[in-house]
Simulated scan of single mutants.
Amino acid sequence: MTRKTPTRPYHHGDLKRALLEASLELIREEGVDALTVAEVGRRVGVSSAAPYKHFADRQALLGALAKEGNRRLGEAMVAATQGSTDPHEAFRLSGVAYIRWAAENPALYRIATDPAHVDYTATSHDVDAPEALKGSMETFWPELAALVRSGAALPASHPLVQQLQGRALAQGMASLFVSGVFASLGITTADAERIARAVTGEDVPATPRRSHPPPRRGSSAT
């Protein structure tokens, strides 16, 4: 594999941000396994010691990427709900955005949803949830855990159970894109929007049929 030379040598400014952007570029091109603090520093064009002032090790870098990924995912979900005052419709639109974002950012999605890098007990986020999504983006996981651990009844109509149903659907669909299952069937990232809208309850009209055959068995997402 040919090693890339730094395309934007770092001189002054926000080194931490530059390192994160280089990390995102690296995982898009070569996958998460290729990520190292040293390689990211080399891409930015700084000394071998400089990146470690911001990220003590690979785990710290992955944690920062998880936070960045969740920030970007949250922003995509919030943007999708702008103008919606109906909580149910807002939740559906946020689910569509979730699936689409995961399909378009598979490597970062894996990091952003990995419990090794994400504290699911936290109730604070970098993205302010709009009023229509309050309670679904901010405190859902801790509240759900408390409900289940309490041994209380779990009626299908309970708001937390309904939210879990929607989240399970969105994460399941996202996983089908990220794992490469859909890619092996010739279903591409370009199809994510249509599929997401359909599984969240919208009747999606037909589109022109694609002529290219599905990829060979063994195809997977990066």
Score class of each variant (00 low, 15 high):
residue 112 A to Y: 06
residue 120 Y to H: 15
residue 118 V to K: 08
residue 80 A to I: 14
residue 135 G to T: 14
residue 127 V to L: 01
residue 95 G to N: 08
residue 84 S to C: 14
residue 70 N to Q: 12
residue 120 Y to E: 12
residue 92 R to Y: 00
residue 82 Q to R: 15
residue 105 N to L: 03
residue 38 A to L: 08
residue 151 G to I: 07
residue 80 A to F: 13
residue 74 G to V: 06
residue 84 S to M: 15
residue 88 H to Y: 02
residue 63 G to L: 00
residue 80 A to L: 11
residue 150 S to F: 04
residue 102 A to D: 02
residue 56 A to V: 03
residue 110 R to M: 00
residue 66 A to Y: 00
residue 144 L to F: 13
residue 84 S to G: 04
residue 71 R to Q: 09
residue 108 L to V: 15
residue 58 R to F: 02
residue 77 M to K: 12
residue 70 N to C: 00
residue 127 V to M: 09
residue 47 S to R: 05
residue 41 G to W: 01
residue 121 T to A: 11
residue 99 I to H: 06
residue 135 G to S: 11
residue 51 P to T: 06
residue 82 Q to H: 06
residue 67 K to A: 13
residue 84 S to V: 15
residue 91 F to T: 15
residue 63 G to D: 01
residue 146 A to F: 05
residue 149 R to F: 00
residue 120 Y to G: 14
residue 98 Y to L: 11
residue 78 V to Y: 05
residue 96 V to S: 13
residue 64 A to F: 01
residue 106 P to C: 04
residue 98 Y to C: 09
residue 112 A to N: 12
residue 132 A to H: 07
residue 45 G to R: 08
residue 50 A to S: 15
residue 73 L to R: 12
residue 114 D to H: 08
residue 113 T to R: 12
residue 107 A to V: 10
residue 83 G to E: 07
residue 51 P to G: 06
residue 94 S to R: 12
residue 86 D to S: 15
residue 44 V to P: 11
residue 58 R to A: 04
residue 42 R to S: 09
residue 141 W to Y: 11
residue 39 E to L: 03
residue 46 V to M: 00
residue 86 D to I: 05
residue 76 A to C: 09
residue 78 V to I: 10
residue 107 A to I: 06
residue 43 R to T: 05
residue 74 G to A: 07
residue 95 G to L: 05
residue 133 L to E: 03
residue 40 V to Q: 01
residue 52 Y to S: 04
residue 140 F to W: 08
